Simulated scan of single mutants.
Amino acid sequence: MSDIEIAELRKLTQFISERFSYDFKDYAMSSFRRRIKRILDLYKLKSVDELIALLDSREGFYEEFVSELTVNVTEMFRDPTFWRVLKEHIIPNIMLNHDKISIWHAGCSSGEEVVSMAIVLDEMGILDKAKIVATDIDRSIIAKAKEARYSMKNIEVHRKNYQRYQGKHALENYYDEIGGEAVMHSRLLQNVSFRKHDLVLGSVFSKFDLVLCRNVMIYFNQTLQNQVLHKIHESLFKYGYLAIGSKESLIWCDIAHKFIVVNNEEKIYKKIKD
């Protein structure tokens, strides 16, 4: 099919907003268009109008659509040096003044990042002192994250990342292989609360020492990024830390002055003003 017109995308976002009360209009247009095109190919639809008709008529299709639209390829210990900085600097700094730590994974996807965090905390001997909240807009991906079962086909990638992170043990110490899947030990997630939350329209629901919102905002335009960053700023304790993706930045955002850069390489910031 030919390229999707902006007018068609506007019609689609308008329909979703009215029918499902979700606002996609401020998603980065090139990324949104690419993903919609993939969905049309996947479901063998000839046009955006056909997609709208399907969303309108088929029970449960909207959830499938959101899953496909927000699909996020992720790995355990992705960017191993980032996890080392967390282990060696950020988490010890938080624990200097606290006997507990609260962490929010905003846009947790299928949970590999949450599992990685649990392993880091476990190896630091403070997993039992952590309260972790993991949220995503997609209900089905949250259900997957809760199960913490990952295909053995991908385990080599996770294992190499863990080795580069310089973990204390072997990754095998943290899962059982069952039916071609690595089933992570349930104790890793005992202090994790998974919930559906919309970063765009959802409210501020708690305060955290550390927020990870990595590789989520690359899909948003500047307006939406600003909205989300305001919400995250409000969700952080003063002197709390924010980690974003390696291709993301706070520099231009209108609350940039309320943060200082702690590690520019790994995109870690510290809130210094309420």
Rank of each mutant, 00 (worst) to 15 (best):
G180C: 10
A148D: 03
R187Y: 15
K153H: 12
K160E: 14
Y175Q: 07
N154F: 10
I155T: 06
V157E: 08
H197Q: 15
R195S: 15
H185P: 05
K207Q: 11
K146I: 06
E172T: 09
N173H: 12
A148F: 02
H158T: 05
L199C: 00
K207C: 00
L212Y: 00
V183Y: 04
S203R: 12
K160I: 15
I155Q: 08
L171E: 04
Y150K: 03
L199V: 06
H169I: 06
S186E: 11
S206T: 02
L199F: 10
A148V: 00
H185F: 05
S206Y: 03
M217N: 06
V216Y: 04
K153N: 13
L189E: 01
Q163I: 07
D198W: 04
I218N: 04
S206V: 02
A182N: 12
Y174D: 11
L201D: 10
V200R: 02
H185T: 00
G179N: 15
I178G: 10
F205T: 14
Y175A: 05
V183M: 08
E172L: 08
N173G: 05
S206Q: 03
E172Q: 13
Y162T: 08
R159S: 12
G179R: 15
K196L: 09
S193L: 11
L212K: 03
V216K: 01
K160T: 14
Q166L: 03
Y175V: 04
S151E: 14
H158C: 08
N191S: 13
R164S: 15
F194P: 02
S203C: 08
V200F: 09
L212C: 11
F208Q: 02
N191W: 05
H158F: 10
V204S: 05
D209C: 05
L188D: 00
M184I: 12
S206A: 06
K146S: 09
N154W: 11
I178F: 13
M217V: 05
Y174N: 09
Q190P: 07
K168V: 14
V204N: 00
N154G: 13
C213S: 01
E177I: 13
L210A: 02
D176A: 08
Q190Y: 09
L210S: 00
E181Q: 14
V192N: 03
F194Y: 05
R214A: 00
N215C: 04
N154L: 11
H169K: 15
H197V: 09
E181T: 07
G179Y: 14
S193C: 09
V192Q: 02
Q163N: 09
K207P: 00
I155G: 05
R164L: 12
V216S: 01
N191T: 12
V157M: 13
R159I: 10
A170R: 13
E172D: 11
A148P: 05
I218C: 03
